[in-house]
Amino acid sequence: MAAKAKGRWLVVAVPYLWLLALFLVPFLIVFKISLSQDAIAQPPYFPTFALSEGWAAIKESLGELSFENYGYVLSWDNEFIEAYGSSLVIAGISTVLLLLVGYPIAYAMARSSKALRPTLLMLVILPFWTSFLIRVYAWIGILSPEGLLNQFLFFLGVIDHPLEILATDTAVYIGIVYSYLPFMILPLYSALEKMDDTLLEAAADLGCTPFAAFWKITWPLSLPGVFAGCLLCFIPAVGEFVIPDLLGGSDTLMIGKVLWTEFSVNRSWTVSSAVAVLLLLVLVVPIVLYQNVQQREVEGR
């Protein structure tokens, strides 16, 4: 009996240990850096804790920690708050676009013949075989003034001077929608695919046109998938920095990009850590929401 309980405890402990070592501890380190001050040193901040110097030294160092960096980040004079806001807006609009593009695709996949579905699913996942970075670079080639898209439109005679897409917010939206589409389609597909077709027959039987049946039956029953897909795209899109960096212009303001600049150009580990911690706080609400949706999904079964 005791051995069995111990075994069960071990099984539960493994994922918790994993999270502790690879998520919580790094987070605490980042949090500690965010409370430190910049220094021209290696590492570029102080205080640093050295266990060898004993308890008294550590205690003294603790006194040197402060929330100064948070004050800096949250002051209206600096661009950070604007960047948070702009990131949330860009992520929000992208999520809506993703839903508009992803839902019809997922719906068509779920309605296609059973034999065809694995192939379609494969095609959705196919882009993952190439590095994300390379795929975003490819979009530069497509969207640049002398890129594929403009050449094609010239060829068709639709335009007489090149469209300015690269280095605008439009390019960022295109990049986000393209890169995150599988994360929208997959949860939608799994929600739509397990729907019982006789429900639609029953709705038709009771007087619903196919259009009304979609809004009254299919849509509400796919809402868990809609929520999951939206949060799965929205949360990482807020912190996205590769896409705005490569496709966006100098005026594209996103917090991920700001954090990267702060870290690599300004060499301020402390401010960028504070930005990261605040970003996490901003995302706690949608993350908790997502957990709730997942929980309800599991209980619903």
Binding site: D196, T198, L199, E201, A202, A203, A204, D205, L206, G207, C208, T209, I217, L221
Partner: peptide, 18 residues
């Protein structure tokens, strides 16, 4: 079409809207 017929059906699986 089914939605214009004056007949209704009780389904084997009941097909209640969950």
């Amino acid at each position: 079409p089914p939605y214009r017929r004056p007949v209704n059906m009780m389904f084997q699986s009941y097909a209640l809207f969950p």
